[in-house]
Design a protein around this nucleic acid. Sequence first.
DNA 1: CGCGGGTATTACTCCGACATAATCGCAAGA
DNA 2: TCTTGCGATTATGTCGGAGTAATACCCGCG
Lengths: 261, 261
Amino acid sequence: MTETVKPDTASDPGVLSTPTTAGRGSGRRLRGAIAHYLGTAIVSGRIQPGARLTGEVANSEALNVSRGAYREAVQVLTAKGLVASKPKDGTRVLPRSNWNLLDPMVLAWAFAGEPDPGFVRDLFELRAVVEPAVARMAAERRDKDDIRKMKRALTGMRRHTLATEAGRAADREFHDALLRAAHNEVMMSLAASITSAVNWTTIYKQRSRALPRDPVPDHVRVFDAIVEGDGEKAVKAMQTLVDLAHEDTTAAMEDDDHRRI
Amino acid sequence: MTETVKPDTASDPGVLSTPTTAGRGSGRRLRGAIAHYLGTAIVSGRIQPGARLTGEVANSEALNVSRGAYREAVQVLTAKGLVASKPKDGTRVLPRSNWNLLDPMVLAWAFAGEPDPGFVRDLFELRAVVEPAVARMAAERRDKDDIRKMKRALTGMRRHTLATEAGRAADREFHDALLRAAHNEVMMSLAASITSAVNWTTIYKQRSRALPRDPVPDHVRVFDAIVEGDGEKAVKAMQTLVDLAHEDTTAAMEDDDHRRI
DNA sequence: CGCGGGTATTACTCCGACATAATCGCAAGA
DNA sequence: TCTTGCGATTATGTCGGAGTAATACCCGCG
């Protein structure tokens, strides 16, 4: 009799079920979990550039998923420049220079494990270049609405601290409003990625210990400069803000290393 | 006789066959052609944010492709933040703020039709911020090998002009070598996107008329400053280079508008 | 008027087969 | 011996259909 039986997914959920980071909790679909699994494996260096992924059939069987779902996950990685597929040659990990490091999801994968210190340094160098420039543009182009949004985010940051999720949300809101105030779509897209990364580092800082410094005054200085329309002042204020954030993150990472040893 | 007959793809190749831009000429697979078709339709504004794509079954039938290939194409768009899919709600185009504007493929789609002047302006503002900073880093960190590569690219630019493909390749080589000299992975990833965009604008410039200005001297000034290790000088030289490129592109676009009218 | 459950619609996952394209080895020829 | 081309191999690519799961929408109930 043609009994339609589901393949025994119960036998081995495999690597796709770790509930915290991977797995498909909260709307994330199966292909998303597969992409996350492969993505972290590649970004973390567990699968090195040039290496070949095992064939679609074998790999999809190993993960207990259909070939179609597996292929869709690989398409996602391909779209982000992590891998490339050719008939007969298989699916190979591309050199790092091809990776879309600013893709929010790639950043998430990079911060899923222990982030590479060099990578964090590079990221902050980019922030140090871009964010002050954005602050200047915001100071020159902001309108009433921009200022209102930033103000509301600031009060939110004051009420809750960065230790709470609400506080971090307010922090993101502030940066987001600042970006919109610059009125440059490309900058916004770039900064959205940076914001994503900043969010990860913020979590990282909190993980090791309570943040010793109150970040609100620094944000206020940037805000004031933008309200005044003083571009130079905004640049300076933002530079110090990024520098301080960098110091805090570095300190947190060293502290984290310490307690690990 | 079980004669294996191909489904009549000959009847209607549909929109996937325009040979110049879309279509799968040169290794591009079917799903690539679909992604290109949908991507340009979205980026060009023919399908507006919030709009719903017709269902998978209907759309894949309309394009004469299987659902699997169509779905894989949609995954690519999803990975670049252009669309999002939910059961019952369908696949909807996301607001522009979610788009990954710096993704090389998205940039290609944006320049496939007539590029939006505002978008080009935003792009050059980003270049004006990032590239001088990269030039400074390159001046401070370059090694012998970096200089050698840049020198070779420069001679290539001198030999062929920007009118030839070889010349444009040399131009890309120069910028690429400069980026590597900065020794910052994230900057490289970002700049790879920018380079891609620059390439499109360069083609655009060439399309309308011969470039009136010889770009080599500007590049040489940047090169000299980097060789000397003079960061400030490199910043200044790169700023003027970007500014001139912006002027040329704007002029070309206006010229192009003129002859269209 | 608000609210909870049923329903219809849509994407999601699975399966199995066949098509296509690169690569490698072998053989024929210079 | 070296080169060239052809065919076998093996990977990804494409296809069609069937069944599952999730959710927006509507309708009836309180």
